[in-house]
Simulated assay, not measured.
Amino acid sequence: MELSRNAMKITASATLEIDSKAKKMKADGIDVVGFGAGEPDFDTPSFIIDAAKKALDEGKTRYTPASGVLELKEAICNKFKKDNSLDYNSKQIIVCNGAKHALYNIFQAILNPGDEVIIPSPYWLSYPEMVKMAGGIPVFVETKKEDQFKVNYDDLTSVITSHTKAMILNSPNNPTGSVYKIDELKMIADLAVKNKFFVVSDEIYEEILYDGTKHISIASLNSQIKDQTLVVNGLSKSFAMTGWRIGYVAGREDIISVMSNIQSHSTSNPNSIAQYASITALKGPKESVKKAVSEFDKRRKYIYNRINSIVGLSTVMPKGAFYIMLDVSQLIGKNYKGKTITGSTSFSNLLLDAQNVAVVPGIAFGIDSAVRLSYATSMDNIIKGMDRIEAFVKELD
């Protein structure tokens, strides 16, 4: 009674142990400061909630077309035109059950067994597993702190082979907060066109940018790279709609058609109420987004300065999203009450035990010398958490 060999290759989350321990501690009444949140700590704007209520009152509770309602697809096309200078029609759009589902559908649609997908590291932890689920092979290319965790030409060209089918581009990036500039995007686009591979451009954090940084979609550079790019986005991060599960993809019509068939036979349509609310979100004002970004910015600056003020810790200033990578490489080999820090997991476990602070081990993202902190939590929590981290580091010998 053998289970699926392909499914057995999927690894469990490296964060599960620490997350479970932190939740148990909280349930036991312990004051745990959590830096693991992958979602905005703001409520969905009221005008979007009102739109959902209206949809309910109007009886929009039945099946929709599997790939999403036409009005939402048209609103997405308008968004791409207005925000990204990209022209798509409704047949080039699919609405999915969140951006994660959109990515899953992409790899199911484009990969054959043995196809390679280039994944810059650090990476969002689900990318390699989704590639493996589709029979593909993740190929990692390590980025450097001095390059702001962005892939460079030499390292990228070194991993391109005749089996390269796609590259994942995540800008703004989770977990590093890095944002690619136009010349860096042109370099990637030129290599993709020359070597004939797809670019899967995950732009879910598009709206969360700082210091005047501009988001540029690689698909907007020219018609050739647009034809080879699948742009992934959604409403989860920008409009604090993580639980609504609406993501979408824009791309070549033949690929979108295949994705629609996959979705039709697996999940069918995304939630009907959430779709109609999303139409209102895309057409509505962005004051809530600007307010959230302004608050994230205050937290970003505080946490950056606190980290770099602690001897033994360092970080790079993120330009987007709401995460920061805490470099703990200088602490590896140090001890806490007889227990040695050997990497990101042991650091995270010892920190949780000693100071009741939960962070995400960097090994989950392909980097074992750092941990990820999310500043999608209150300033009070951030201050308390950083005080505890500083106290922990001072106790090491």
Rank of each mutant, 00 (worst) to 15 (best):
S67W: 11
V159A: 04
V179Y: 07
K79V: 11
G177Q: 00
W124F: 13
K150R: 14
Q92V: 03
S178C: 15
V159F: 00
L86E: 12
N78H: 02
A51M: 04
N152C: 10
I110Q: 04
D115L: 06
V95F: 00
D41Q: 04
Y180R: 03
T143K: 12
I110R: 04
I160D: 09
L72S: 01
N170H: 15
L169S: 05
N112T: 11
C77T: 00
E129Y: 12
F149C: 05
L86V: 12
K53D: 09
A51H: 04
A52K: 12
W124V: 14
E184M: 08
D115Y: 02
E146F: 10
N173V: 07
Q108V: 03
Q108Y: 02
G98Y: 03
V117F: 04
I119T: 07
T161H: 08
V117Q: 01
L56A: 10
T61A: 14
Y127L: 11
T161R: 10
S67N: 15
P128I: 02
L56N: 09
E116Q: 09
N112W: 05
G135Y: 01
K54I: 01
K73H: 02
C96S: 12
A99C: 12
D57N: 13
N84W: 15
D50A: 10
W124S: 14
T176D: 13
D57V: 10
N170Q: 13
I119W: 09
I118D: 05
L169C: 00
F107Y: 13
A134I: 02
A51W: 05
N89A: 06
P122I: 13
G114Q: 08
E58R: 06
K54R: 09
D57L: 13
L86K: 08
N170P: 02
D147E: 09
E74I: 08
I137H: 02
I49V: 15
N170W: 10
L103I: 12
G177Y: 01
K73W: 00
T61G: 13
N174V: 14
N174D: 14
D155T: 10
L56H: 03
T44R: 00
G59I: 02
S162N: 12
T176L: 05
N173R: 05
F80C: 11
D147T: 08
M130F: 13
I182N: 12
N174P: 06
I110N: 04
M187S: 08
E146R: 14
Y153A: 11
L185Q: 07
E74G: 06
K81I: 11
P138N: 07
L103Y: 05
